[in-house]
Amino acid sequence: MHATIEVHGLRKRFGQTVALDGMSFTVSPGHVTGFVGPNGAGKSTTMRVILGLDAADEGTALVGGRPYRSLRTPLRHVGALLDAAALQPSRTARNHLLWLAHSQGLPAGRVDEVLDQVGLRSAARRRAGGFSLGMRQRLGIAAALLGDPPVLMLDEPVNGLDPEGIVWIRGFLRSLAAQGRAVLVSSHLMSELQDTADHLVVVGRGRVVADTSVADLIAAASRDRVRLRTTARERATTALSQAGATVAVADRDVITVSGLAAERVVAALTAGAVPFSEVAADRATLEEAYLELTRNAVEFRAADAEAGR
C-alpha cells in the first residue's frame, strides 16, 4: 500500500456546470499537501470522487494505487473528514466511532485510542448533538484516524475552529505527515495553510492551476522585484528607467523596481550617484501569490458554488 493519492484527468459536469475540467495531481507521502482554491473550484467534488462518493464522467482517482470502491476495509487505507456535522445527534461520540470500528473489523480499544489522540476522552460518552463545531471537527478527525490509515483527506478542517483549535490541528497534521502519511487538506483560504502545508495544489475552475512547493510558489510570484528606500525618488526613477527597469512608487521613500536584479539596481544607482538607504528583494506573501494565480480562475457564480459544494 503506497501512501499516495493519484488523480488523473477527472472531468465531471453537473448539468450545464462544469465542476471538474481535467483535474490531475498526485499527493505523496511524508508531507501535508494543501488543496486550495476558491469556493466552487472543485475541491470537494474532487475529494468525493477520490472517495468513491461521486462518479466522475472521465478520468481516474486512485488511493494507494487502487480505486476507493475496490477497498474492502477502506478506513484502514484512507481516513477522510468531509462534513463534521454528519452525525446522529443522539448517538454518543464513542458509539459513533464504535460502529465505524465494527464496520472495519477494528477492536473497540482503537476507539479509545483515537479519542485520546484528539483530546475527546472526557466527552466520549456525551451525545454528539451537543458538541461544539470544534469538538465535531475533532470527532471527525478521530473517525479519520480510526483505521490508522496511510492516507488522510480533510475537507476544510480548520473551518469554524477557535484559535487554539487551529494551532492544535496544524501541529497535528504536520505530525501525521511526519509519520510518513500522505495528508491532503483543502481550504479556500491560503492563509489557513500557510504554516501547515509543504506542498500546494492550487485549483480554479475545475483544474489545477499550480502544483508546487510553498517556497517555489512564493518565489515565482515574487519574480525579481526589489524594494528600494531612497530620499531621491525622482533621480532614482530616472536612473533605473534608463537601465531598463520598471519602477513603481510604493511609499513616500520607497519604490518597487522590477525587471532588474538587485545587484544591477545597486550598480545603476551607484553610477548615477543616487543616494539610497536600503535595497531588498521583495518577497510576496503566500496570499499574494495565491491571489495572483487564481485571479483568472475566480469566477463566482451561484450555480458553481452550489454544484461544487
Binding site: P74, L82, D83, A86, S103
Partner: peptide, 11 residues
C-alpha cells in the same frame, strides 16, 4: 449526511 460516512466505511 451520515449516509456518506456509511458509504465511506462500506463502498
Amino acid at each position: 449526511g451520515l449516509i456518506r460516512t456509511s458509504l465511506l466505511a462500506g463502498p
